[in-house]
Amino acid sequence: MKKTILMVMMVYTSVNFAQKIKGSDTVLPLSQKEAETYMKSNKTAKITVTGGGSGVGLAALVDNTTDIAMSSRKIKMDEKIKLQDAGRPYKETIIAFDALSVIVNNSNKVSQLTREQLEGIFTGKIKNWKEVGGDDMPMVVYSRESSSGTFEFFKEHVMNKKNYAASVLSMPATGAIVQSVSQTKGAIGYIGLAYTDKSVKDLKVSYDAGKTYIEPTMETAKNKTYPIVRPLYYYYSTAVEKAVKPFVDYVLSAEGQKIVEQVGYVPLSK
């Protein structure tokens, strides 16, 4: 039964020269919204968007089962090699940015940290808030589960590729981190900028050893002064460039970038 449905769908989609977009769950809501509005203005276009994770999307690009792979991280060396082996040159386009903000409990005195301090906190070297200028209370460190792309990004760009301490509490969802940080005095965690609210406090972050501290806002993320920002990518093979280009151009257009901001990500600066 499933097979027949699948086959019917495949026949259907290939008849309409539909585009398939697959990959990162972070980019998924954005792509869905973009595809929806794009299809409204272009009645002939058919775009299907599915999630699964950045790795899944790029693997599908290698197998040629998707036209565009969405990714919340840069393509990895071994994925490049696989695409190379499959004889499929590709193009990379940054479609938006996602800022991560470091949050603490509202009652916490500390309002800023350097990257080195963050690394110390998440690798378990710094264990008490008094070491970074706060009250004498133990730190409670929250992270996302290791299956999330946010986990990898934070490890690579904030923690200098070192491993998380074993004592770090890992939460299954962003909402759970916000909830826990809001009710735990010594808590610290990280979430996407779109998810912060008044129940938690955003920290200013310094990437130049304490000279300047930048607050995470849509403005600082847009003008690139806020450091913990990751690009979100589309990858597509040059063979189908003609077919996918109109949609990619739409996403990059002013209209498309307005949707980026609506969904809660940071639009590309002009």
């Binding site: 133990p138 730190m139 735990t184 010594g186 808590a187």
Partner: peptide, 10 residues
């Protein structure tokens, strides 16, 4: 967390 005065309730 409140009852036992712990840093973390989880």
């Amino acid at each position: 967390q409140k009852t036992f005065d712990l840093p973390v309730g989880e």
